[in-house]
């Protein structure tokens, strides 16, 4: 199906059924992609976006999982914190960018934090959900078989929540990428998002589509990687995910 679609596009572009200027042939885009990845700006932009994404993800994942777990096991803490999380969660985190630019200035900290904020709330909510929706009988098993306190947490609660934590990490990674590309559109002068934007302005469409394709490929590869990691670490899971 995708191959047929690409072939159709290729033909339409070659025969000038659609404007080759706006819709260059996929082979043209592919050639630019290969060419610019090593020699030109594409490779550099990819690395910049990847570095921002890695940093943003790490900044979100560690505190996000910790906060989610803490909210899951400590009722009073959850009651105190949940309204804030629920309040901020649906706000598109790109809306935080102006605020962060004001307090941090235009620069990497504000960019990366916007991406991190995007992933953070998703990771918190997924982790919390994992703890809250675990089979309550497993807690009874823990109690009846002598696992209390920290032991109950490490041996029962955390493993039970791990699949949901992985789901949260995967969704969070995607959200961070979305936010970062948007940040690069708006404020950053580097990265794949910036490249898409700049080539759009200059109407150098093959480069624009090439950068576009790289963003998609980046998301796909990283999500697949996390999936593979999950399949490896959580091989006990019944269903494929």
């Amino acid at each position: 199906m995708p191959v047929a679609l690409l072939a159709l596009w290729e033909m339409a572009s070659r025969l000038a059924l659609v404007s080759p200027r706006y819709f260059p042939a996929p082979t043209t885009i592919g050639a630019v992609l290969v060419d610019r990845l090593t020699a030109g700006d594409l490779g550099g932009a990819l690395l910049v976006t990847l570095a921002r994404l890695g940093l943003a993800f790490a900044l979100a994942a560690v505190p996000g999982v910790l906060l989610g777990l803490l909210m899951g096991i400590a009722r009073a803490f959850r009651a105190a914190v949940e309204p804030y999380v629920a309040f901020v969660f649906p706000v598109p985190k790109i809306a935080l960018l102006p605020f962060l630019l004001i307090i941090l200035g235009v620069g990497e900290p504000a960019f990366v934090l916007t991406g991190a904020a995007s992933a953070f709330f998703q990771i918190v909510i997924s982790t919390l959900g994992g703890v809250r929706t675990m089979d309550p009988r497993l807690l009874e098993v823990g109690h009846n078989y002598g696992a209390h306190g920290a032991r109950l947490f490490w041996k029962v609660i955390l493993p039970a929540a791990l699949p949901a934590i992985f789901t949260g990490l995967r969704l969070g990674l995607g959200l961070a990428l979305i936010a970062l590309v948007a940040v690069e559109f708006i404020a950053a002068k580097s990265g794949l998002g910036h490249l898409v934007y700049r080539h759009w302005q200059m109407l150098s469409t093959p480069e624009m589509y090439a950068a576009f394709a790289l963003v998609g490929a980046l998301g796909l590869l990283l999500t697949r990687g996390l999936r593979a990691l999950q399949a490896r670490l959580l091989s006990w899971q019944e269903e494929s995910f």
């Binding site: 089979d135 009988r137 497993l138 009874e140 098993v141 009846n144 041996k155 029962v156 493993p159 039970a160 791990l162 959580l234 006990w236 899971q237 019944e238």
Partner: peptide, 11 residues
Amino acid sequence: MVFQEHALLPW
């Protein structure tokens, strides 16, 4: 306790 529907730890 032997639980209804086993309640084994799946991991």
